[in-house]
Design a protein around this nucleic acid. Structure first.
Length: 558
RNA sequence: GGCAGGGUAGCUCAGUGGUAGAGCAGGGGACUCAUAAGCCCUUGGUCGGCGGUUCAAAUCCGCCCCCUGCUACCA
């Protein structure tokens, strides 16, 4: 089979707070599992993302802290890089939108879209906060709702009556940044002619029948209503400068500029790899596929705006799939930075192992609906599933083999038992089935497929009872244990996209010295006579007191 | 309000026309290699509500209720 070319694009985290487990489950973990699988298959994979350095919330946060946007960005970017490294998110490049390269690529795209007539200028009346000297996004204006009189409506919407508002309509408006009364000012901005792409997008999306229903239907809904042209520049000083004379004080707006990061990061990767043209294989080859992993809040940007930009620019591949996840809630409530309602990744990684969380998040991955994270469920899944089903399988087989067969893989005599042949066939079938699930980005199902094999292997062992057979029929026990070791080697590969660290250890425990991925996406046969090291448990059983300790951290001000 | 997704066993969820499923929790049992793990059996559900189509509906249609998200200048 000829290798496929797979571009794995992952949402650009906003560099104003550290990452929490919900973001990991929404985009980074599924992307990583998907990329690791395709690499094991021998496919050509490029997985990129980076920190989104720009945008008003970063400047607001910098002011609140008495520091600079640059400092806020740098601190959180360093935190992201550290989290991904420790959590095993295997980016080929994790960069940022603060690079010279990114600014150049974004400006080039901006310029080319102007030349092609897809971007035009128009005047806009916006609210301006004279006290902080800044134009205000609608969300940063509060006031009295003109519909219901509620005092506390935001510039975009009234939470009391649900009306969609225009910030200019608010009575007694006040700036959330300074409490000043904002004043309307006229400013000239660039607009992306999204409306012109509406029908082209609709035809395209209708053909994407492999997309998740939530993503496709939602997008078709947007297109049915009709896209509006959007302003893509802002009166800010933090961001990528508008590359047009007379607009020196303005910046390209983040959502237009950040999605271009997928392309600029691919180019940066190619440059660093010493082959500056290497990105083209992922972006220009007709059979290359691009997958965009992210949370549901980012769907419109990846199914309408970014494709429209690509259509306008020309010559680059549109997304093949946008497997957006729903949200992971924390003990029933939406994750929130301000209320400290989240599992913060740097904290988690300081206190716990990586794979139990990767397992938990993959097992409840919110592929079709929101999923809930509780520490009780985390402990249960660790103890009942990782430790008891998979870890114990490895441990019982290896301790038994070590004790009775001189710490080497036993040599079976004669033809294998039908039950053993069936067991190995089950493992082989699981590679096909799990692979099919992963390629369809149904990762929960793929993990279940692998775990069903571990359960089956425990059943197989109980039926064959090698601990009894070893006293009466040594050849029978030898054959069973040799088979079980092959099953473990297979499971180590099957589970490795999900649990890279512990699968690496399992691989060593069955006497393998090479890299686990060199076996590819197949079961490796472990040769008779292979020496086995002293077995050590793959996972640690957790105490229930952990639940209380961790839950007490939720909602506390840190 | 509009749009989208979801509402199935105590919990977490699978199941898109043909006699309701899995894991965990609860109950019982045989075993003993293993981190008292694993294995077998079992209790448990008017599939959100009402109506309709059909020989047959968790599944298709209509209305309603509840949860989540989006609603375009937060990204």
């Amino acid at each position: 089979m000829t290798p496929q070319t797979i571009l794995v694009c992952v949402a650009w985290p906003y560099a104003n707070t550290p990452l929490h487990a919900g973001q990991i489950a929404g985009a980074y973990l599924p992307a990583d599992i998907f990329a690791r699988y395709h690499r094991m298959r021998g496919n050509r994979v490029l997985m990129v993302s980076g920190s989104d350095a720009h945008g008003t919330p970063i400047t607001v946060r910098a002011e609140a802290e008495g520091t600079t946007p640059q400092a806020v960005f740098e601190r959180n970017h360093a935190s992201f890089v550290d989290t991904f490294a420790r959590f095993g998110i295997s980016f080929d490049l994790f960069t940022s939108t603060a690079t010279v390269n990114h600014a150049r690529v974004a400006q080039d795209m901006f310029t080319r879209l102007i030349e092609a007539g897809h971007i035009y200028t128009a005047e806009q009346t916006l609210l301006f906060d004279a006290k902080v000297g800044r134009f205000l996004p609608d969300r940063y204006v509060e006031g009295v709702c003109p519909r219901c009189g509620y005092d506390g409506a935001r510039g975009d919407q009234c939470d009391n009556c649900g009306s969609t508002l225009d910030a200019l309509e608010l009575l007694q408006p006040r700036s959330k940044l300074s409490d000043a009364t904002p004043e309307p000012r006229v400013s000239e901005h660039f607009f992306l002619r999204l409306s012109a792409f509406n029908e082209q997008l609709r035809t395209w999306v209708e053909a994407q029948t492999h997309w998740r229903p939530a993503v496709r239907n939602f997008t078709l809904g947007l297109l049915r209503e009709g896209l509006h042209d959007r302003a893509i520049t802002r009166d800010l000083d933090w961001g990528v400068p508008v590359p047009v004379p007379g607009f020196e004080g303005k910046r390209i707006y983040v959502w237009f500029e950040a999605v271009i990061g997928y392309l600029s990061a691919s180019m940066e990767w190619a440059e660093r790899a010493g082959d500056p043209e290497a990105w083209r294989a992922f972006w220009e080859a007709p059979d290359a596929r691009a997958y965009y992993f992210q949370g549901k809040d980012n769907v419109p940007f990846h199914t309408t705006i970014w494709p429209a930009i690509l259509m306008g620019y020309g010559g680059l591949n549109l997304p093949y799939d946008v497997p957006a996840n729903q949200y992971v809630t924390m003990s029933g409530a939406k994750a929130s930075s301000s209320r400290n309602w989240a599992v913060w990744m740097p904290d988690y990684l300081d206190r716990h192992d990586v794979d139990p969380l990767r397992y938990m998040l993959a097992a409840v991955m919110p592929e079709t609906s929101d999923a809930d994270f509780t520490w009780a469920e985390y402990v249960r899944r660790n103890n009942d599933e990782l430790v008891a089903t998979w870890g114990n399988l490895v441990h019982r087989v290896l301790t038994l083999t070590r004790r009775h067969f001189e710490a080497c893989v036993p040599a079976p005599e004669g033809a294998p038992a039908p039950a053993s042949t069936a067991m190995l066939a089950r493992v082989d079938a699981a590679f096909v089935e799990a692979g099919r699930h992963i390629e369809a980005v149904q990762l929960r199902a793929a993990l279940q497929t692998a775990f069903a094999v571990a359960q089956e292997a425990n059943r197989y062992l109980d039926e064959r009872a090698p601990w009894t057979a070893v006293r009466t029929d040594r050849a029978h026990a030898a054959e069973t244990l040799a088979t079980a070791i092959d099953v473990i080697a297979g499971l180590a590969s099957l589970l490795r996209p999900f649990l890279p660290e512990s699968c690496e250890r399992a691989w060593r425990l069955v006497g393998q010295a090479d890299a686990i991925e060199s076996a590819g996406w197949t079961r490796r046969h472990v040769e008779a006579g292979t020496p086995l090291p002293e077995p050590a448990p793959l996972f640690t059983k957790l105490d229930d007191t952990l639940v209380e300790e961790e839950e007490s951290r939720l909602g506390q001000s840190s």
